[in-house]
Structure formats: C-alpha cells, structure tokens
C-alpha cells in the first residue's frame, strides 16, 4: 500500500506517515479535550483581541492536557477524565455531523443518537489508550492569523522530548463566528486535516454500504469495544 513511498519520495511520505500517526496520538485527545475551553467566554470583540484569545485558548488547552498527563496515572482514571471532559465541554455533535456530511441530515433521530454515542466512545477510548504520549509533549506557539470570516488559525510546533516522533507543525482551526464563543474545530498536521481525514473515511464507509449510516455505526461500535479491550489489557 505504501510501497510507492519507498520508491518515489521516501522522506516526504515517511514524514507524512509519521505526522499522521503523530496526529492521531495528539489529535484524538486534543480535539476531545480542546472543548474544555470551548465554553470559555471571550468578551473582547476586536479582531486582534479575538485572535489573541484564540492563541491563549490553545496554550491553555496544552497546559491542561499536560497537567492531566502528569497527575493522572491509571487507565481507568484517564478514561474517566477524558469522558468527563467530553461530556461537559466537547462540541462533538458539531464535529460528528461534519464528519458524515449530508448523511447527518438524512439520518433518523435514532441513527443520529447511535452515531453520536459511538463517535464519542471511540474518541474517549482512543484518548485513554494514547494518553502516555502527552507526558513527553512540548508545544511552542508560532503564529496566529484570521482566515476569512469564520476562522482563526493558530500554528504551533509539537516536539516529542523522547525523540520518538519528529517535530511537526500543528494548525488549530478555531471557529470565530461573530457573536459566538471561540472553539476549536479542527487540527491539522503539515496540512493534513484530522477532521477531513475522518470525514473521508466515514463517508467512504457509508457509500460503500449503499448510503447506510447503520453500517458505519456498527463499525464504530465494534471499534470502541476493541479499544476498550486494548485499554483493559494494558
């Protein structure tokens, strides 16, 4: 599958694979937890203030993640922390609806609820399974910019102090709609969007199954059980 990479552009593809793995490790928990700051209210309304607030939000998020990583030790505790944060703060319904595109509107209420539940469970389990990674994570702010009317992009550098993963540029896409609170919508590593990748995968599963959201729900539920077993075996 990846053999082309070794034949054509080994370094470039090697880096994107590492980056993607990096993204899964960082992104799953980060996206899950970023919403703890989503409900923070930022009163300032000027563009500069909003951009500054967005940058601070990301830095606070990283601080919170590292704090939990440093102080929580058992898998069960980590699972509970992640679950608690998602239940309280995560706008996972927005991300979940984005990740299945037009099929969200076509779904019945029952299908939507099932999808939301499975989607959330996979995120929490993946977070709990990969939490160790954050113990060696360092983040450095690089830049902040307003993009169009709806977004602020915060760029930073993620560094793994163990040297196991290469440094990677991470971009946080923050929703900046007028009159609404700031919240993080997506995370990209070297221009590979976590949310778009998840959307492409979800949509492919649905379309491969003749438009059935139930097929995706089945797979997600199966995946969450596998992740739970893996966590309990650790």
């Amino acid at each position: 599958m990846f053999l082309i990479a070794s034949l054509k552009q080994p370094n470039r593809l090697m880096s994107v694979l590492r980056i993607y793995h990096h993204a899964v490790m960082v992104g799953v928990i980060a996206v899950a937890m970023l919403s703890m700051l989503a409900s923070y209210s930022y009163a300032s309304e000027t563009e500069t203030d909003r951009t500054q607030a967005a940058a601070e939000m990301v830095e606070n998020l990283i601080f919170e993640i590292q704090d939990i990583a440093a102080n929580v030790s058992t898998q069960d505790e980590i699972y509970l922390q992640a679950d608690h944060i998602i239940n309280r703060y995560f706008k996972y319904e927005t991300l979940a609806s984005f990740s299945i595109g037009p099929y969200w509107r076509k779904a019945t209420d029952e299908q939507k609820q099932r999808f939301l539940s499975a989607f959330r469970e996979v995120i929490v389990e993946q977070a709990a399974n990969n939490f160790d990674y954050f113990r060696s994570l360092e983040y450095r702010f690089l830049s902040a910019e307003k993009k169009g009317e709806n977004w602020i992009i915060i760029n930073g550098m993620v560094h793994d102090t163990t040297g196991q993963y290469p440094d990677a540029v991470v971009s946080w896409r923050i929703s900046d709609k007028t009159g609404q609170e700031l919240y993080i919508f997506d995370l990209s590593f070297e221009n590979v969007s976590m949310l778009l990748t998840q959307k492409d995968e979800n949509m492919a599963v649905i379309r491969q199954n003749k438009g059935s959201l139930d097929a995706l729900n089945d797979l997600l539920e199966k995946r969450s059980i596998e992740l739970k077993q893996a966590r309990l075996e650790n």
Binding site: M1, F2, R12, V16, L17, R18, Y20, H21, V24, E190, N191, V192, S193, L196, T197, D200, E201, N202, M203, A204, V205, Q208, L216, L219, L220, R223
Partner: peptide, 25 residues
C-alpha cells in the same frame, strides 16, 4: 512499522484513510 500498521489495522476503511492523507498531503 507502527505508523503503517496503525493505519492498516486501526482504520474503519484503511483504503479511504490512505487516499485522504495522500491527496491532502
């Protein structure tokens, strides 16, 4: 090894995930 196995064994649809990453990058 780990990166590729992660995509190969952990994806819901590894074909779609590889394609998405490849095309975005």
């Amino acid at each position: 090894f780990e990166y590729i196995n992660d995509i190969k064994y952990q994806s819901l649809d590894s074909y779609a995930r590889v394609r998405s990453i490849y095309l975005q990058y």
